[in-house]
Nucleic acid binder design. Structure first.
Lengths: 268, 268
DNA sequence: CGTAGGTTTGAATTGGGTCAATACAGGTGG
DNA sequence: CCACCTGTATTGACCCAATTCAAACCTACG
C-alpha cells in the first residue's frame, strides 16, 4: 500500500506524461494506482478517437469490443424495437463511460451517436479485464463504478415512474445543469444539443408535452429558451417545482403518521 | 485451461459434496472453475439462510456486506423516498442475485423482504472480490452477470416508458411465466405472492388499474385469476397483446419505409 | 434562398388516476 | 371449526393530465 500514485479528479495538467486530453486518466476511471500500474493501464488506451456529429460510435447488435470514456462532446444512446420505434436511453457526455451494458450479452444493445463533434478514448474490454485482474485497485474501482451505474439507472427509473410531465422536464434540466457545472462549464447557460423528440423519448413523454413544459417555465420566468440554447434564470425555483406542487403523479400511498416529512428528495 | 470443472445449470445433484441446496453452486453464478477453485469458492459461502415471510433480508441504508443468491422463494425489493412513498424495484426469485446495486455506494439502497418463506445463500463481498481477483474465470463470469443486470434494468426502463397499462401488466405476467418455467415450475399456472399494490408500484400504475387489466384479460379468456393464483389459458394471445393493438402508448416515430416489421419484440 | 425538418401552439380526446362503495380472503381468537 | 375483523381486491363513476391531431411557424442546411 505504499508508493501510491494519487489521481485526483480533473487536474489541469496530467501528472506523468500521459495523454493530455484523455478522459480515462483524469476521470473517475482511475484511483490510487501505483506509477507502474498507471503506465501499464495507459499503454492500453486507444487515445483520441474523433466522432463527428451524427456519426455512430456503434450500433445495437454489433459485437462488443471496447468500452469508451467520453472526453469531450455530447452523445446519445438509444434502442430501437422491432417496430421502428426508437427510445432514448441517455445522453452521455464528458466523463461518462459507454458500453457497460454490453458486457452481459457480448453485444452492444444501444445505438450510440454523436450529437456534436466529440472525442472518446477507448480500451478493448479484453485488455481491461486483464488489467483489472492484475491490479486490485483497478478492479475495485471498476466494480464500484459499475455499481454506481446500476444504482443510477435504478434512481432514474424510479424518478420517471413517480413524476408528472413538468417535473420530469425540470429534473432533466437540473440534471443537465449539474453535469455542465461539474465539468467546469456554466450550469445556468448552456446548449442542449438534442432534439425535443429525443428529450421526450428519454423522459417518456411526447415532444409537444416537452415543448409545452419548457414554454411554461419560460412564461414563469424560471428559464429563457431560444431553440437549443437555454438559460436558467432561477435555479432555486426550478428545484422547488419538483415534487412540491400537486403535480406529482401519485399521491402518498400511506400518509399516516408523518407529521412533516421534509425535503429528502434527491431528484437526479 | 485443462482440468476444467464443468458446472452446468440446475443439475439435480451437486457434483462435489457441495451444499445440496446452495444456489451459488448450481446457478449461473459459477462457470468453468477448476476443482480447487470451486472448493475454495464454496468455503466462503454462508449456506442456507432462512428468511420467513415478511422478514427483511436488509433495509435501505444499512451497510453493504454481502451479496446473496436466492435459493428458493420469492422476495421483493423496494425503495422508500423521504415522503413515505414506497416504490417496488423488483421481485427477485430463485436464481437471482441480490445486492449488486449496493456495490457503488457501499450501502444497500433497497429494502428486501420475503414474500414467502425463502432461502438464500450469501457471501461477504470482500471475500468475493478477493476470489474474483484470484480466479479469472470467476471474475469474468461476475462481470458478465453484472452486465446482464445493467442491460436488464435498461430493458425494463425502456419497457415501462413505452407501454400502456394493459401492455405492462401483460408483460409482467409473461415475465413471471418465463421465470417460473425456467426454474422448472409450470409457466402457465402459478401463484403470484405479491399484492396488487406491489405489482402496480412495480409497473408504475395504480392498483385499481392493475386489477382492471387482470379482470379484462379474464373476460377475454386469456387468463383465469383467483386472487393470487393465476392460470394463463392462452399464452400466445397474451404475447400478441403487447405493442400490437393501438394500446401502445406512443405511435411510431418514423413509420416510413418499413413494409412489414414483423415480431422482433422481446418484451421482458 | 428554398425547403425539409424541427418547434410551438391550439383544440379535442382519452387513458389512467381519484374517490368511493362493495366484496372477498386470510389470519385470529373464542 | 367457525365467526369475526382487518387488510386486500374488485368494480363503477367521474375527472384531469397528457396524448393526439392539426396548423402555423421557425431554423438551419444544402
Amino acid at each position: 500500500m505504499s508508493a501510491v500514485y494519487p489521481v485526483n479528479l480533473f487536474p489541469p495538467v496530467q501528472p506523468h506524461g500521459v495523454c493530455p486530453d484523455c478522459g480515462f486518466i483524469r476521470s473517475r476511471m482511475l484511483a490510487n494506482l501505483t506509477f507502474r500500474e498507471s503506465m501499464r493501464f495507459n499503454e492500453r488506451i486507444e487515445h483520441r478517437s474523433l466522432i463527428k456529429r451524427k456519426d455512430y460510435l456503434h450500433h445495437a447488435g454489433s459485437a462488443f469490443k471496447s468500452i469508451y470514456l467520453i472526453n469531450r462532446g455530447f452523445l446519445k444512446t438509444a434502442v430501437t424495437d422491432g417496430h421502428g420505434r426508437e427510445q432514448t436511453i441517455g445522453f452521455p457526455t464528458a466523463g461518462d463511460l459507454i458500453g457497460l451494458e454490453a458486457i452481459g450479452a457480448g453485444r452492444y444493445n444501444c445505438n450510440t451517436v454523436a450529437l456534436e463533434d466529440s472525442r472518446v478514448c477507448g480500451m478493448r474490454y479484453s485488455h481491461f479485464e486483464e488489467l483489472a485482474r492484475d491490479i486490485p485497485a483497478l478492479q475495485q474501482h471498476f466494480h464500484r463504478l459499475i455499481g454506481q451505474e446500476i444504482s443510477r439507472n435504478l434512481r432514474m427509473t424510479h424518478l420517471l415512474r413517480g413524476l408528472g410531465a413538468e417535473d420530469r422536464v425540470a429534473t432533466f434540466l437540473l440534471n443537465l445543469s449539474r453535469r455542465f457545472a461539474a465539468r467546469g462549464s456554466s450550469g445556468t447557460r448552456f446548449r442542449m444539443p438534442m432534439s425535443r423528440r429525443d428529450i421526450a423519448s428519454f423522459l417518456g413523454l411526447k415532444l409537444e408535452t416537452v415543448s409545452r413544459a419548457l414554454s411554461h417555465f419560460g412564461n414563469l420566468q424560471i428559464i429563457a429558451i431560444k431553440s437549443k440554447d437555454i438559460e436558467i434564470a432561477n435555479l432555486a425555483r426550478l428545484r422547488q417545482l419538483i415534487g412540491n406542487r400537486d403535480n406529482r403523479r401519485f399521491a402518498l400511498q400511506r400518509a399516516a403518521s408523518m407529521p412533516n416529512a421534509e425535503r429528502t428528495l434527491t431528484p437526479a
